[in-house]
Amino acid sequence: MIAPLRAVALIAGKDLRIELRSRVVFNHVLPFAVLVLILFGFALDADSDALSSFAPGLFWVAVLLAALLAIGRSFALERADGALDSFRLANISPVAVFAGKALAVFVQLLVLEVVLGIGIVVFYGASLEKPGLLVVAGVLAAAGIASAGTLYGVVASQLAVRETILPLLLLPVLAPVLIGATRAFGDAFGTVAVNGWSWLGLLGAFALVYTTFGALVFGPLLEEG
């Protein structure tokens, strides 16, 4: 049996290495997320005041939509040859599988956030006031999205209708992340007069709850019948 931490690193490394070679998230999901930002520009009639004041919310909607695709991709990797079953055959603990998959999604989300962050500065004219708050909120929210997404992603991946059911299952659950992260970013970009730091507790609690719960139930979710 492989040591749990090493298994986590192996699984996350495997997913990221596949991404570096196939570049599916980089070539498809990242441009899609930027496209969403541009669509918001058209939808809000290129009103630069509206765009800069709603920039934090639009940023997180774009992240959520892109995250759906990234999570779908993460489990598409495991579909061939019953790869998820082979983790069990290799006697790798389900907790490690969960943590490894979530870690790889987390890293990809961070890259997405950096690109989209530059996007809202360039396209929406958002001006950064509190970089520290921005970084912490971005990391905590990505952790919450990655763990909840991995939990729901494996449930959806076992169905023939995985692409259409994942958004329905996942997005209502991620609503608190959208609320908290938008508020924190609103403070970081100076668009709303709230104390953004107080929202980090919610984002952290969400990430903690879903990481714990995901690790607990991932074993049963991977089992046959």
Partner: peptide, 25 residues
């Protein structure tokens, strides 16, 4: 979403177990 999940054909025991987890989460 829970009902949509239950409406999709699946192996019965797996469906019942995963639906239970979805309901609890």
């Amino acid at each position: 979403g829970y009902l949509a999940f239950r409406a999709v054909p699946n192996e019965p025991h797996r469906q019942a177990r995963n639906a239970s987890i979805l309901a609890i989460v």
